[in-house]
């Protein structure tokens, strides 16, 4: 799915996000970097119409997100743990998601096959989400977005609460999902090393503006690190 930002601005009292133009093509993996408060979450929320655009338009596949809902069917996002229904068991939560997205339910073994070492569905399926650790809750939420087979996947700092091993497994999962589906992935992160394991396009936001936008090359990591070093 393609995403297009045209002259988008969003202003708060002491902060302004301004995206004159941003075009994310179908099948791209976009990695959003930036300091705290740089505007990453606002940008993601603008895409899924959780924040109202002040000026300009945001479209998904040509559909203005604030005026249509058809894009929701092919979009999955996990921005924070409020996307979980914590008093449900893991399996029940997934069943609800399948129903929302009108796709057939997957069995625990199918989920395990997809999740690999990321999440042990057999041991967690009957547990309530509220009783899981923070890391496992994030895993449940992130895996839920993959299970509904989206064409556009949006994740806000999905690896922030994960252990080092799970971070790497998640990136592998995303790579595999991307390889099997022509899916657009947008994820924000602070971990340059781990996110560099998936190739795509790196965007650095700084103070509400895009300061770096490059397709990954060999020395991608050094370039991004250089950018952050320069701003110190």
């Amino acid at each position: 799915m393609t995403i297009y930002f045209n002259n988008v601005t969003k202003t708060y009292k002491d902060f302004s996000l301004s995206i004159p133009e941003l075009h994310i093509k179908t099948g791209e993996v976009v990695k959003l970097f930036g300091k705290n408060g740089a505007g990453k979450t606002t940008l993601l929320r603008l895409i899924v119409d959780l924040v109202e655009v002040e000026n300009g338009i945001v479209t998904i596949d040509g559909m203005e997100t604030s005026k249509t809902a058809a894009w929701k069917k092919s979009t999955a996002c996990f921005l924070d743990d409020s996307f979980l229904i914590k008093y449900l068991e893991v399996q029940e939560y997934y069943k609800l998601l399948y129903n929302f997205y009108s796709i057939p339910s997957k069995s625990a073994s199918e989920v395990n096959e997809l999740a690999g070492n990321f999440l042990d569905m057999y041991s967690l399926k009957d547990k309530r989400i509220e009783n899981l650790s923070t890391g496992n809750q994030v895993k449940v939420g992130v895996l839920g977005t993959l299970l509904v087979e989206p064409k556009l996947l949006i994740l806000d700092e999905p690896i922030a609460n994960l252990d080092p091993e799970s971070r790497i497994i998640l990136i592998s999962l995303l790579k595999r999902y991307k390889a099997n589906n022509d899916c657009t992935i947008i994820l924000s992160s602070h971990d340059l090393n781990v996110t560099n394991r998936i190739t795509g396009r790196s965007i650095i936001l700084d103070n509400g503006a895009i300061k770096y936008d490059q397709y990954d090359q060999k020395n991608n990591l050094e370039k991004i690190q250089q950018h952050f070093n320069n701003s110190l």
Binding site: V48, D49, L50, A69, K72, K73, T75, C77, L79, S82, F83, I85, L97, N99, F100, Y101, S102
Partner: peptide, 18 residues
Amino acid sequence: VSINFDALSVWPISYSSI
């Protein structure tokens, strides 16, 4: 009554079912 507002806004909830 029981699901977060943000999630509700993004999920493609079919009113006929829920």
